[in-house]
Simulated scan of single mutants.
Amino acid sequence: MAKRLEQLREEYKNVPIPKELDSIVEKALQHRPKKKRIIMWPTAAAVAAAVLFTAIVNINPCAAQAMSKIPVIGKVVQAITFVEIKEEKDQSSIHVKTPALSGLSNHELENSINQKYLKESKQLYQEFMKATSKKNKEKWHLNVYSNYETVTDTPDLISIHRVIQLYGNTQSRYITIDKKNESLLTLKSLFKDDRYIKVISQNIKEQMKKQMKEDPDKTYWFTDEDIAPFKKIHADQNFYITEHHKLVISFDKYEVAPGYMGVTKFEIPTSVISNLLVGNRYIR
């Protein structure tokens, strides 16, 4: 674990920090607040992970809390809460948990995923700092939120879901990893060819129609009368695989429905796609 945390530290150092944060980090290193609002869990690994982000969150006496804990979510692959940032400023707020994978022998895959998570969190923090900056003449209240959870954890698979809320929009991001082969699964990799796009899209439209018929409070955009109707899924559409080996397709808020519908998901019947699958190891 110590070696992996050290590698994460190196990857973190190599990720470019937004220019706006450069001076903040420098000041934080030179003038540490007398009263830090950083909570470190009493384990060596957790402390090592938490200190990596200290310079960014220790920007002033009202700085956010940063914490790190390491819950085990699988026998081999672990999810680390790399850092948790919480701050309120000028009626704006930010609460962001940055996840990191640990335990993969495929270090290239692990590092690339962790770099992505770190960059996302830095971008969110930068948006928050921009909204609350004294130089910002156009003041607005911004609530930034990001969290993650493990939606699937089996001997073969792990699927991690990260949700990001920014400017009233909600985005869901999933990664699904084959634990035994230590490879990242893509939607395209599950199928023999691109026929899955049309087949899955048609099934989703049928589900939309059925849901709207059964529940008048549900609305989806898929007819020609709609301004931006859903036509088909993207080749790399957001997805995950359940512990029962079912494929679930996910759409962000506003992507295929009005905002009040939030993030929408559709479980695809295996019978609809069985003849298109490369095999039945993941979906059956």
Rank of each mutant, 00 (worst) to 15 (best):
E6V: 11
R9T: 13
E10P: 00
E11K: 01
Y12T: 06
V15F: 12
V15D: 10
V15H: 08
K19Q: 13
E20N: 10
L21A: 03
D22G: 05
I24R: 10
E26R: 12
K27W: 02
L29M: 11
Q30C: 00
R32W: 09
R32F: 06
R32L: 11
R32M: 12
P33V: 06
K34I: 05
K34G: 06
K34Y: 04
K35W: 07
R37Q: 14
R37T: 15
I38V: 14
I39A: 00
W41K: 06
P42W: 05
V47L: 10
V47K: 15
A48V: 08
A50T: 07
A50R: 03
L52M: 15
I56N: 04
I59L: 11
N60K: 11
A64Q: 11
A64W: 04
I70K: 02
G74E: 03
G74L: 08
K75L: 11
Q78G: 12
I80R: 01
T81E: 13
V83E: 05
E84S: 00
D90P: 00
Q91E: 09
S92Y: 04
S93Y: 06
I94S: 03
I94V: 15
T98F: 07
T98R: 00
A100E: 07
H107P: 03
L109D: 02
E110V: 05
N111F: 09
I113C: 14
N114G: 08
N114T: 03
Q115T: 14
Q115C: 09
Y117M: 14
S121E: 05
L124E: 10
Y125P: 02
Q126S: 14
F128M: 11
K130M: 11
T132H: 04
S133E: 02
K139I: 02
H141I: 13
H141G: 13
L142Y: 04
L142G: 09
N143L: 12
N147V: 13
V151P: 01
T154G: 03
T154V: 06
P155I: 11
P155M: 13
L157N: 09
I158T: 03
V163C: 06
I164D: 08
Y167V: 09
N169D: 07
Q171T: 10
Q171M: 10
Y174H: 10
I175E: 01
I177R: 01
I177T: 01
I177P: 00
D178K: 05
S183L: 09
S183H: 08
S183M: 11
L184V: 07
L185W: 10
L185C: 15
T186W: 09
L187Q: 06
K188I: 04
K188S: 15
D193H: 12
D193R: 09
Q202W: 05
I204G: 02
M208C: 08
K209E: 14
Q211T: 12
K213H: 08
E214C: 10
E214K: 13
D215Y: 06
P216L: 09
D217G: 10
K218D: 01
T219F: 00
Y220Q: 05
Y220S: 00
F222G: 06
D226M: 08
D226E: 14
A228M: 10
K232Y: 12
K232H: 13
Q237T: 07
E243C: 03
K246I: 01
I249F: 07
F251A: 03
D252M: 05
V256N: 02
P258W: 02
V263E: 03
K265S: 10
P269T: 06
T270R: 02
S271N: 09
V272L: 04
S274M: 00
L277R: 02
V278D: 03
V278I: 08
G279Q: 13
N280P: 02
